[in-house]
Design a protein around this nucleic acid. Structure first.
Lengths: 267, 267
DNA sequence: GCCCCTGTAAAAGTTCTGTGAACGGATTGG
DNA sequence: CCAATCCGTTCACAGAACTTTTACAGGGGC
């Protein structure tokens, strides 16, 4: 689960021997696998190479370059593509990006920079790959759109901070299941929870606050004592809930809000 | 704007009557709309023609040709450009393509081939630039016309620089969604953002300034801390031109009066 | 009833954004 | 060809927004 850093498998389409020499030296130093191509090749061949990055000198390919770029990026959606040219206008770069490129480098470029950008592109692709095919996550009234960094409750948008959003995302992804506290932390914060860290609690509280403000009468995040939390939209038990009955202008938090939550279904 | 299949609207900049005769005959046969120009014209005129392709004899324009080419391709990023010349060196072709041309034809050329290349270029452009062909983008009081490089607020034209315009365009295209800072940068600047680059912030500020100056009482660009920006026209709570609604202390009116995008959401 | 766990609030600490201004390159006009 | 200007970028500082830590109180399980 924790590949220290991504292995880069790339192909370079270029014929500039000087540029290639410094580049490949840098690639070797990083232990990357690479291959040098002298021109466009059928996309199928690239697929067979199982690359995760591609560096192309577009000026080398002429007008065919755009076609090549388009073909490649549509056939290998997971491939990070870095264009490099002698010079370029913004219009060209934007066009390249629209056709699927991820970055654009102008020669001459320092090999360090090229490598850094390739690495960034691979990392970025890796991160955004699953996001792309996963549609919006729905759980009851709650909708989480990972691609937009936005969450909605009953069609109304929630204004969440980064951590709040990521926490909600993990919880909603595992809707109905109990997520262990440490697991939660690991997935949101990206590293192991230190002893005595209460961040999770604090953010659960914040999330609850915002969720309930937008749909009172519902409990979303349930506490499992000594274990973790479970996301599961459920109407709050009997008494008032929300339907007209209770005093409308009285969602006043202070005293009222600290009940329920713990349906404590722990085994 | 209901051209079902790719209608080609092109201009030919050439004075070679023989070449023109065979070409235009072919264009007529295909039912294309075209126009013949005897020399370079201001890019604005080309914009007004709403072309999607341009064929230019560069030898006709001499050294000005490169300028013309660059101006045109930067001002009309959605335009397919085909160069044709009597003869050319590789260096020239590379230069032309670099400046934004899509293809290069050497005379004499068979009209069939010219037509085929034009068609290919238009098809390619259409796929890669769906936005440019689309009508004006509207978002609240704001209208962005990609084809004119102009934006309007409440029918009044905004005086934007190139970057400002492109930034607004990307934001308005994704109206309602949060666009990540890096995405924004990549789409406007054409390459990946370097660490520590604050250009986006600066231009957001400039845009906000110009937008709010032209329609006070409205907020257009909303900040999502640590993530990016979201374009979404919303009245500013101040007072200005909107029915003064609820006062604070009126959190959730259950079901009664729905939509009020409270701009001052919790957090 | 005791001890551990969680809810809640607020202080303390970090990181990020808003903003004005200076710098340098590019463009325009003379 | 030079000067005036505009534009884009970078820098520095202030302030805002967010995260983490800390503290205490209320519940839960045994």
């Amino acid at each position: 689960m924790n590949a220290q850093h991504a292995t880069v498998r790339l192909a370079v389409v270029d014929t500039d021997s000087g540029f290639l020499r410094v580049l490949t030296r840098r690639f070797d130093a990083a232990g990357w696998e690479y291959r040098v191509l002298a021109g466009a090749v059928p996309a199928e061949e690239l697929v067979a190479m199982k690359l995760n990055a591609l560096v192309v000198d577009l000026s080398l390919l002429g007008p065919e370059g755009w076609d090549f770029l388009e073909r490649v990026s549509s056939m290998l959606p997971g491939l990070g593509v870095v264009i490099c040219t002698q010079s370029s206008t913004t219009a060209q770069r934007v066009r390249g990006l629209r056709l699927g490129a991820d970055d654009w480098i102008t020669k001459p470029a320092h090999p360090e920079e090229v490598a850094a950008r390739i690495e960034a592109v691979v990392r970025r692709r890796k991160r955004s790959q699953p996001k792309a095919d996963a549609g919006p996550v729905m759980a009851g009234e709650v909708e989480v759109r990972a691609d937009q960094f936005q969450a909605f409750v009953a069609t109304r948008s929630l204004d969440l901070t980064r951590r709040e959003f990521e926490l909600l995302q993990v919880l909603a992804d595992n809707s109905g299941k109990v997520v262990e506290r440490e697991d939660l932390y690991q997935r949101v914060w990206g590293y192991a929870m230190a002893h005595g860290d209460r961040s999770v609690d604090v953010f659960v509280r914040k999330l609850r606050g915002k969720l309930e403000k937008h749909s009172p009468g519902w409990a979303y995040i349930h506490t499992h004592f000594g274990v973790g939390y479970r996301f599961d939209p459920e109407p709050t038990d009997g008494d008032a809930g929300v339907p007209a009955a209770a005093e409308p202008g009285e969602p006043e938090p202070a005293a009222g809000s600290q009940n329920f939550h713990t349906s404590a279904t722990s085994r």
